[in-house]
Design a protein around this nucleic acid. Sequence first.
DNA 1: GATGAATGAGCTTTCATTCAT
DNA 2: AATGAATGAAAGCTCATTCAT
Lengths: 218, 218, 218, 218
Amino acid sequence: MPPIVDKSAKRADIIEHAAAVFSKTGYHATKMQDIATAAGIGKGTIYEYFRTKEELFLAVYDAWMTEYENVIRTRTAAAEDALSKVDAIRDSAVEFYTSRAEQAPLLLEFWAHALRTDNPAFLERVRRTRSFLKNLGASLTAELVNSGWFTEVDSISFSELETGISDGIFLSWVLDGRSFPLDKAYTFRQSVIGLGLLSNETRPILADRLAAKLKKGM
Amino acid sequence: MPPIVDKSAKRADIIEHAAAVFSKTGYHATKMQDIATAAGIGKGTIYEYFRTKEELFLAVYDAWMTEYENVIRTRTAAAEDALSKVDAIRDSAVEFYTSRAEQAPLLLEFWAHALRTDNPAFLERVRRTRSFLKNLGASLTAELVNSGWFTEVDSISFSELETGISDGIFLSWVLDGRSFPLDKAYTFRQSVIGLGLLSNETRPILADRLAAKLKKGM
Amino acid sequence: MPPIVDKSAKRADIIEHAAAVFSKTGYHATKMQDIATAAGIGKGTIYEYFRTKEELFLAVYDAWMTEYENVIRTRTAAAEDALSKVDAIRDSAVEFYTSRAEQAPLLLEFWAHALRTDNPAFLERVRRTRSFLKNLGASLTAELVNSGWFTEVDSISFSELETGISDGIFLSWVLDGRSFPLDKAYTFRQSVIGLGLLSNETRPILADRLAAKLKKGM
Amino acid sequence: MPPIVDKSAKRADIIEHAAAVFSKTGYHATKMQDIATAAGIGKGTIYEYFRTKEELFLAVYDAWMTEYENVIRTRTAAAEDALSKVDAIRDSAVEFYTSRAEQAPLLLEFWAHALRTDNPAFLERVRRTRSFLKNLGASLTAELVNSGWFTEVDSISFSELETGISDGIFLSWVLDGRSFPLDKAYTFRQSVIGLGLLSNETRPILADRLAAKLKKGM
DNA sequence: GATGAATGAGCTTTCATTCAT
DNA sequence: AATGAATGAAAGCTCATTCAT
């Protein structure tokens, strides 16, 4: 038996394998033994790092969402202006989801589970990422309104809507068997929404380009 | 003299009670005995009408979606023009979901299950309603484009997007603990999207009103 | 599968087999499967009649003690006078324990368990039989005192002592590998105790006989 | 500089902590980790001193019984005559048990375990103390008979009986929730038994005093 | 000697499903 | 048609014990 690197590395390793097995088999159909086997460890070892199967499930989701948030943080920080930041968020979402296409159904399972379990940590974790996205969206919206790009819009409401829209496109994509390219859908949506929000000053600048995209579709 | 109930009435009765129990407890935590008890029948009797728990779950979803589709069919048939039909769809969705607020998480569970089970009937059923909605949306969109209300837009893509957006708002609503009024969210969304789609001819007519709604928020 | 006789008969049947398996293997080492196999039923069936292994254990003890009490009730009722009733109790105890020699260690396990479990029903059941025996003993003692056979003695204390002595002899018998005949031990004890309790009037009548028994031993 | 403790001191320390934890939680519910934590050492360290949990259990019992025997040896050696030695034994028992009231149920568990395990060392240890007590009792009885205090009695049988009685009183005391004072019970028993054993010569001397105690009860 | 991470045998309990009545 | 007693596969979790460091 090789010496253990360190506890948190092993924990991360278990999470990674659990993510793979959960993604493939689904939460309920996955047995702890499956995960142990995949991770090349004993069943009991998992319980040294996670108290229950449910806690491990939460850890998988947490790892995903933490990474997702970090990607967005990094990318938006690198972007110079508000419009670029919006694009950065869109690209982050598209890349995150497409690179995890096989794992996408697990997000649905997680949401469903969060709504059922007695453990409040699940919904809390779900809402944390949603808050992060909504706050980010609201501040960018406000910036776009203030800079004159957008017509006046309640930035909180709009960000709430946008967050829902993103999830909805993802949901459609998953339920429809990923029958359309996710990036095209996000871009198309951006054109529709953008066209609606342009101010009277900026509309002339972009309207034609966006209109062309609308005509073309996904 | 035993009450005469034809098989399909009893089947419907079981579905109704199953829906209630599933909604409250969730699919996995619900025991067949719970449903039998709720329906006031013997556990074995359920199996006279449904081969498995899973099939009963499907039947519950099917009943819901069939009713949902029928409501939309009836309402859109009663509406006179395309814009009214769009409103009819929106109202149907809002009413359907708000009147089933407690049952909403079950839809998530159903979707998650549909993506996992080997039984293709689940995804088929999910996609049937989605197709219905997308087709209806596409034809209404085409009508609005043709009539000059909307700028030119790929109606198939747009309808796909709109379907996703509806699901996404619903999803947000459920995950965020129904913290905002669903009808307001749907209306707000309609304003944003509508403003983006108006043609150059119709924009002057409605732009001010929609802009006011954007400003006001949900 | 033959038709079921009736629920309580089946329950009793499970108890009987559980008693046999518990006696042979001990409570902790016994698996529910062992009992099911012995009873010729499925493992799950046991759970139709008993909620937990612990509850089944209690049922076994309860059945034994109920029978024990009933034997004593029947025998003492049939005995004519107090002295005969005392003998009846002694004989009942000896016969009960010797006929269950193999099962005796289980009583120890039950007592130990009763002192550990959170379920108060265990100690309650233990104390119920003890109360029954102590009350019976106290009333017989009072009768023997009143009739002049015994010298004055606090009947409650004496009965408490006697109950303990009975258990103690049984305990010795079990721990020492049943190396002495239980009936002889009970008789010998009766002689010692009896000799101590005789009144000045009755001592002359029985002293010689009892003294002879003391000399002889077990 | 690490504290110097020789192996046997550390072994004794583990036994002491194990006794405390076993007493509180019971043998089966106690985890090796609990003992390690209580002793402030690592789980693996226990296995440097004891091969199994069972062996540690035996060691705890052995320590108790060895101490018990030593107390009796010391006290009886200090007593001048046979009657005083008898009192010394009684006092030792009462003090030993009352000072370990919380630990008493563990003795029952030990006995139960001894009757179940394949390891013969358990019953051997149990019987060793019992033999010690029986032999001591028999020789004291013989002395009391020879000196004329007691009427003729088979000292082996009587000592066997007395050992059982002691255990029985202890058992009653534990099972009845220590609802009576143990010392009073032992004294009361001594009066009853003593009155039965007095010889014709000594009876006049003590009978009145013992009779008074009988009347008074525990 | 001391440690605690790793292990997996083992066990209770659940519950969808069957089928004799 | 209706029932519910019977079933056993299944799985999460525990914990005594090992052994590399």
